[in-house]
Design a binder for these strands. Sequence first.
DNA 1: CCCTCTCGGTGTTCTAGAACACCGTCGAGC
DNA 2: GCTCGACGGTGTTCTAGAACACCGAGAGGG
Lengths: 249, 249
Amino acid sequence: MNGNGRVNGRLPRYHQIAQALRARIREGTLRPGARLETQRRLATSFGVTLMTLRQALELLEREHLISRRHGLGTFVAAPSIDYDILQLRRFAGDLSAKGEHVTTRLLAMRFSTPDRLVADALGLGPGARVLVVARLRLVDDHPMSLQCSFLPALIGDEIVRADLARTPLHQALERTLGIVVGRAHETVSAVRLGRREARELGCPVGAPAFESERVSFDAAGAPVVFDRVFIPGDRFRITRELHYEGAAS
Amino acid sequence: MNGNGRVNGRLPRYHQIAQALRARIREGTLRPGARLETQRRLATSFGVTLMTLRQALELLEREHLISRRHGLGTFVAAPSIDYDILQLRRFAGDLSAKGEHVTTRLLAMRFSTPDRLVADALGLGPGARVLVVARLRLVDDHPMSLQCSFLPALIGDEIVRADLARTPLHQALERTLGIVVGRAHETVSAVRLGRREARELGCPVGAPAFESERVSFDAAGAPVVFDRVFIPGDRFRITRELHYEGAAS
DNA sequence: CCCTCTCGGTGTTCTAGAACACCGTCGAGC
DNA sequence: GCTCGACGGTGTTCTAGAACACCGAGAGGG
């Protein structure tokens, strides 16, 4: 009747519902293989429409937390096993090991509202505030990479005081808040440098560069920090060593 | 008013719509970066409700074919494919699993003298001859990567006969010569596409791209093949999952 | 000149209801 | 005893409309 859109300023209703169900699954109230209540029943009990509830289920299915089967029901999916075998080396940027002189210059640190990609990655609703930390990494006083980190406001409040020009962010997180990063997901693409990035890095606009976007998660699986890094292509390379096991048949 | 569900026995309406839009993108009626019509307008022109149209867009967004931006519009995404760097070599296999149509076009195969970098990597003296194999990888008939492989003449003599448009090089090496690649070293950098690469890949000259250079070694540790691959940055991303073990050691 | 605020356009979330489509089961008929 | 068809339960697709939320641009104030 009212088509209210959103009454309160928080997360969309279907996100909230998804979170609630996620919690039930994580806590074991809903065990793998168990069948959820009927969609209609769930909708009623959450006080929303069937369509809205289905949006929530959509999210969960995309995360492989549930599986819906036409005519049968909705089931908690078996936890997918992460068979990540190879321990990937770190970026070859571990230059400090090579005796290079690496420094960090803090460019900016302020609160702001993130763009959609960042907000999504951090699981924040639109309008949430984050702490943005912009840093320039220099090798032998030559700009090497431009890094923007985004932290949820609650975490950012505590981090603001740390001396991020000297202390690695991960270390600050651990010491100040006891947060340990246990997992991260990283995406690297090849892009052209924009005006601002080029200026900070001292490159011509449009120079080829790596852009890395990384989400780090704490031990509980909650997103902690989003990093966006630009590295000019002429100053950096990714190297890796591959080992092909057992050449199976 | 009818809430028809499905009148005909075919695909759901929103799937049909998604297909129609997919076709427009593939055929170039909608070019990357272009803005689609308003959701409301599209809904009207397809004769469906906003909600139904949005379901179609949902599909396309999940496929990374479009990107929707609140307050701005819906845009055709630059073709881009997530890929796990760990499995770079199993290129075709993974994509076809996603339902993409992957083909290889053999551009050239001839003997020539390699440049210094290649010769060094293969442990050859100056003036040695190598077999050069240039291949274009296409995903859904759209150029995806340009790959040049260099093999020492002795190996190349046997490989010339293989149908490299259909047979993976590694497979040909194993079947024809019993050579099994056991290890490889790869370097990835961000570069600007040169004239020739851009032409083959159908990109503007100077477009940002990944360049991967890889040396593969056989079980005895002898270099077997050198690969140089160009992948436009708007069609490819490296993704990886990192796991930080509990500060072991 | 710069900052702010409003405004129109665009995507987003939600409602209330209806008609399907798919699945397993159970009973009638052979 | 076995097969097939109806049935109830469950997920799926769709409608028509409404109220938001977000963004960029342009107008107005400092």
